[in-house]
């Protein structure tokens, strides 16, 4: 049954963060298979491989060595075949400029990685909206994005 579900691509350099995200998704009953990439380059490499099964959504960390999240976003936005894949930003940064930049670059959600797992799980709930939609189906991203991301308070 789970094989039927489309892929999620998780781009994060921190192995522990990856584990946490996967576990939270599991607890949110998001049973889609998750493919992990440890950097922007690795993710691009995965997406551009011939045999690639395109993911239904990309969960993207911002702070990564070498190619960071924003650079990755800029790069895939130039590639037509990936433009329709919704990207959800997963980051510890609560800076307003990062949030704005994320939206400018077309991310559908901005999810703050709270060290509090319960909070993080709550924030991660919006992933469920994209988890069961194949990437080429229309999904009214803009509206949903506004609704689902918890806008962090500037500290």
């Amino acid at each position: 049954m789970s094989e039927m579900k489309p892929l999620l691509l998780l781009v994060d350099d921190d192995r522990l963060d990856t584990l946490i995200t996967k576990r939270c998704l599991k607890e949110l009953a998001v049973t889609n298979p998750v493919v992990c990439a440890a950097s922007g380059e690795e993710a691009i490499e995965y997406l551009t491989a011939d045999s690639c099964e395109l993911p239904c959504a990309i969960l993207l960390d911002l702070n990564m060595p070498r190619m960071g999240g924003f650079e990755f976003l800029e790069q895939i936005s130039t590639l037509e075949q990936f433009r329709s894949i919704p990207v959800l930003i997963l980051t510890t940064s609560t800076a307003q400029e990062d949030i704005d930049k994320g939206h400018t670059l077309g991310a559908v959600a901005y999810i703050v990685k709270s060290p509090n797992i319960v909070e993080f799980k709550e924030a991660l709930k919006c992933v469920t909206r994209y988890a069961n939609v194949a990437h080429n189906e229309p999904c009214g991203m803009a509206n949903q994005a506004d609704a689902c991301h918890p806008m962090p308070q500037a500290q």
Binding site: L16, D17, L19, I20, R23, P115, N116, V118
Partner: peptide
Amino acid sequence: NTPVGFVSC
């Protein structure tokens, strides 16, 4: 914070 939170969860 994160790993400890994760483990306790």
